[in-house]
Design a protein around this nucleic acid. Structure first.
Length: 464
RNA sequence: GUCCCCAUCGUCUAGCGGCCUAGGACUCCGCCCUUUCAAGGCGGCAGCGCCGGUUCGAAUCCGGUUGGGGAUGCCA
C-alpha cells in the first residue's frame, strides 16, 4: 500500500504521509510501530511526514489526537446525525446471535435511538458509559467513485459506532477527521474498506467537507486464497524477507508486480521504482487479489544480486551475516576473504543467507574439512592416482593463480592420465571443499593458496 | 444468510470486438555451453470457469450461473 501511495505522491509531486491509527487500545502490540518504521526504511519508502519526523499537521498518532475528534462528535450529535447508545456488549452479542439464528439481515436495532439515558436505563442490557453511533439515513448514497475500479457500489451501512465508551474514536471517524485536517487528497487502502466507504462519505457530507479520492487496492492472499494474515503467512511481516536474505529492491519490485503490470523496458518485469513512478496510472492497478509466489521473488532476488557490483554484494553479505548472527565482529581477514570469494558465488546466489555456506570451506581451517558422504561416493578407483599427480603438478607451479592452475592440471590429468575432465577434477573438488558441488575449483584453489590446497589434497589421499 | 468486489496457463500477468490457431515472466521438462553447481542461450508442456445473448465476428460487450474473496465489531 505504502509503495503505491509513494509512487502516486512522487508521480504528482505530493507528500507521502504516515499516520499511525492506534485507536484500539486492546490490540496495541509492543514494538509494532517500530516495525512499521523499520520496514519502510528498509524498503526505501520514506515518508515526508510521520510520528518520527513530525510535520505541520501533527501529531501523527491518533491516540494523541483525542481532543481533535471530540468537537466533531459533539457537532454530529447536535445536528442529529449521531446518537448515544447504552447497549451493553452482551446485549449486542445476543442481538447478533438472534439475527444469525433467524437469518435476518444484520445491523444495530436502534433500541437507543431517541431515548435519554433515564429512559434507556429502564430497559435491559443497559451500560453506564454510552458510545456514539451514526444515524444512517434511509437515502444514504451507496455509490462512490474509485480511482482503480470506477463507479463502485457498496453495502448499506449499519449505525456504526464512531466514539467508543473509552472515549477513543473508531477508525471510521478518526480517518475522516484526520484526512480532512491533514489535507489528504488521495486515500489508498485495501479492498476490505470498500464496504465502509459510504459511512466515510456520509461523515464528510455531515461535516461539510470535500471527500478525498479513494483507491482500493486488491488484497494480497495466502496460498489458500484467504486474506493475508500474519498467522497463516510469515511473509505478511515484511521484515521476514530481510531475515531470509532478500534484497529490498527485489521485494519492492515483486510487490509492485503483484498489483501492477510490468513497466520496464520492453515491458520487462524487472523495473526500478523510478520507472514505476513515471508510468504510474491508477487505472492500470490490478483488481484481483494476487497470491504470493515466492518462486518469482527468488528469481528476482537472484537477478538483483547478479546486478550488484562485487564490492556492494560482499558488503551486503557481511552486513547480513552480522545481522543474522552468523558472523560476530568479523576480522579484517574475514572481510577480505568474503570480498575475494564473492565473485565466485555471485551468480550462484538466490538469497544473501546462502553466501556464507557456499564459501564456508574457504573459511574453515584445513584440518576441519569433513568429506561429505555423497561427495566421497563420487570418487572413482583412480582418485589416489589423480590426487598424487595433481599434488605433484601444483607443488611447483608458479604463479599459483587460477589462470595457471587450470591449464596445468588439464595437461597433467586430462591429457597426461587420459581421464575425462569431469572425473579428473572431482577428486580435487572433494578434497578441497569436502562437497560434491562447489564454487569454481581453480579460483578456490587460488584463494586458498598453495599450502592449504596441497594439505587438503593430501588429507583426502590419506583417507582413501 | 444478506450485501459488495473479483474471474486468462500451477503462479504473476498482456489483451480493452477482428492483429489471438491468446503474448510475456516465474516454476517445471528437454537440449546447448561446461571441472561440479549456477548463470546464460535455444526449445517444450500448460490457460480465456460454465450457459445463454448482442454482433458478419467475442478472451474482449450484456444477462445469468458457478467459483473465490471481502464486509456484516465499542478491530483496523
Amino acid at each position: 500500500m505504502a509503495l503505491f501511495d509513494l509512487a502516486w505522491s512522487r508521480h504528482t509531486g505530493g507528500q507521502f504521509v504516515l499516520r499511525i491509527e492506534d485507536t484500539d487500545r486492546h490490540r496495541l502490540v509492543e514494538g509494532s510501530e517500530e516495525q512499521i518504521y523499520d520496514t519502510l526504511r528498509w524498503l526505501g519508502l520514506d515518508p515526508e511526514e510521520s510520528p518520527e519526523l513530525g510535520g505541520v499537521y501533527g501529531p501523527y498518532r491518533q491516540s494523541e489526537r483525542l481532543d481533535t475528534y471530540r468537537p466533531h462528535v459533539e457537532q454530529l450529535l447536535e445536528d442529529g446525525h449521531a446518537y448515544h447508545c447504552w447497549c451493553s456488549s452482551e446485549r449486542l452479542a445476543g442481538m447478533r446471535a438472534e439475527q444469525q439464528r433467524t437469518k435476518s439481515s444484520g445491523g444495530y436495532d436502534r433500541l437507543c435511538l431517541g431515548k435519554s439515558a433515564q429512559e434507556r436505563a429502564e430497559l435491559p442490557g443497559f451500560s453506564e458509559t454510552p458510545v456514539v453511533r451514526m444515524h444512517i439515513p434511509d437515502d444514504v448514497s451507496l455509490e462512490f467513485e474509485d480511482l482503480i475500479r470506477g463507479t463502485v457500489k457498496a453495502p448499506r451501512p449499519d449505525d456504526q459506532v464512531i466514539l467508543k465508551a473509552d472515549g477513543f474514536p473508531t477508525y471510521h471517524l478518526a480517518v475522516v477527521v484526520d484526512d480532512h485536517l491533514m489535507n489528504i487528497t488521495t486515500v489508498v487502502r485495501g479492498e476490505e474498506w470498500i464496504s465502509s466507504t459510504p459511512k466515510h462519505v456520509l461523515l464528510y457530507q455531515w461535516l461539510g467537507w470535500e471527500p478525498p479520492k479513494f483507491a482500493h487496492m486488491p488484497l494480497l492472499r495466502n496460498t489458500d486464497k484467504s486474506k493475508i494474515s500474519k498467522r497463516k503467512n510469515p511473509a505478511a511481516r515484511l521484515m521476514w524477507f530481510r531475515e531470509r536474505g532478500y534484497l529490498p529492491e527485489a521485494l519492492r519490485n515483486f510487490l509492485q508486480l503483484l498489483a501492477y503490470p510490468p513497466v520496464g523496458e520492453d515491458d520487462s518485469e524487472v523495473a526500478s521504482f523510478e520507472e514505476f513512478v513515471a508510468a504510474f496510472d491508477w487505472q492500470k492497478v490490478n483488481t484481483t487479489g494476487p497470491i504470493f509466489d515466492v518462486k518469482k521473488l527468488d528469481w528476482l532476488n537472484g537477478h538483483y544480486i547478479r546486478q550488484l557490483s562485487g564490492t556492494e554484494l560482499s558488503a551486503r553479505i557481511i552486513n547480513f551475516a552480522e545481522e543474522s548472527g552468523a558472523l560476530t565482529d568479523p576480522t579484517d581477514e574475514q572481510v577480505a576473504l568474503v570480498a575475494r570469494a564473492t565473485p565466485l558465488i555471485q551468480e550462484r546466489l538466490t538469497l544473501l543467507s546462502e553466501a556464507l555456506g557456499k564459501i564456508n570451506f574457504l573459511i574453515r581451517s584445513d584440518d576441519d574439512i569433513e568429506i561429505a558422504d555423497d561427495a566421497r561416493a563420487q570418487l572413482n578407483d583412480d582418485a589416489p592416482q589423480v590426487l598424487d599427480a595433481a599434488m605433484a603438478a601444483l607443488a611447483e607451479l608458479n604463479p599459483f593463480t587460477a589462470e595457471a592452475i587450470q591449464p596445468r592440471l588439464r595437461a597433467v590429468l586430462v591429457e597426461g592420465l587420459g581421464i575425462k575432465p569431469k572425473f579428473a577434477f572431482t577428486p580435487l573438488r572433494v578434497g578441497i571443499t569436502g562437497q560434491r558441488v562447489s564454487p569454481p575449483l581453480f579460483e578456490s584453489m587460488e584463494i586458498l593458496g598453495r599450502k592449504s590446497t596441497l594439505l587438503r589434497l593430501q588429507g583426502l589421499a590419506d583417507s582413501l
